[in-house]
Amino acid sequence: MLPQHQRIRTAAQFSDTQRSGSRFGNRNVVVSANIRTDAAEAPRAGFIVSKAVGNAVTRNRVKRRLRAIVTEVFDRDLGVDLSDGSIDLVVRALPASAHLDFDDLRESTTHAVHGALRKFMRRGQ
């Protein structure tokens, strides 16, 4: 579970990450990644799960799974040099994510996170 200080909560934080970050997606999720200049802060993540994904029970299940997956990703090495910043991620669930089991959703989300970070690092060079 992501602690409160690691969550993106305001509309300004969501829009900043989505506008200035790099996007990478697949048929299940779209991830926007941005590196903030404040290296002292912990990485943050926000989740967007629209009604197109399903009813409230389905949306909440997808959000819980995505939070657990992103927590695992933050605990592991992201493969990015974070000496000069901290990561913000916005994960948008697409309707196909409602029909995946946890392992497939983990693989799909992890692939998208790493892809968005690679794309952001290429853009910065």
Rank of each mutant, 00 (worst) to 15 (best):
S108H: 14
R118M: 09
V91Q: 00
S50P: 09
R59I: 05
L66K: 10
T110L: 03
G25C: 09
D38A: 04
R44P: 05
I87A: 09
S20I: 00
N55D: 15
L105K: 10
S108Q: 15
R23T: 09
A98M: 01
R44E: 08
H5I: 05
R92T: 12
R23V: 06
S86D: 05
V57R: 08
A112T: 11
G54D: 03
I87S: 04
K63I: 07
M121L: 07
L100Q: 10
R123Y: 02
Q4M: 10
Q6N: 14
R92P: 00
S50L: 03
S97C: 02
T110K: 02
K63N: 12
A112D: 08
E41H: 12
S108F: 02
S83V: 03
F14T: 07
D84T: 13
Q13A: 15
H114E: 12
T109L: 08
Q6T: 06
S83F: 00
L78A: 05
S32N: 11
V31M: 07
P95F: 11
T110H: 04
K119A: 12
R92N: 08
H5A: 09
I8D: 03
T71A: 15
M1S: 02
A98G: 08
A112I: 08
L2K: 13
G85P: 07
A33L: 04
D16F: 00
T110G: 07
M121S: 10
K63W: 05
R65M: 13
R106I: 01
A98R: 00
D38S: 05
F24T: 07
A45W: 02
E41V: 15
L105F: 10
P3T: 05
A12S: 15
G85D: 12
L2I: 12
R64H: 11
N60V: 05
A11S: 12
I87F: 01
A45S: 10
V49Q: 01
E107Y: 08
D103F: 04
V70C: 02
A12W: 10
A98F: 00
T109R: 05
R92F: 02
R27S: 13
I35N: 02
K63T: 08
G25H: 09
S97G: 05
V53G: 02
R65A: 14
R106T: 09
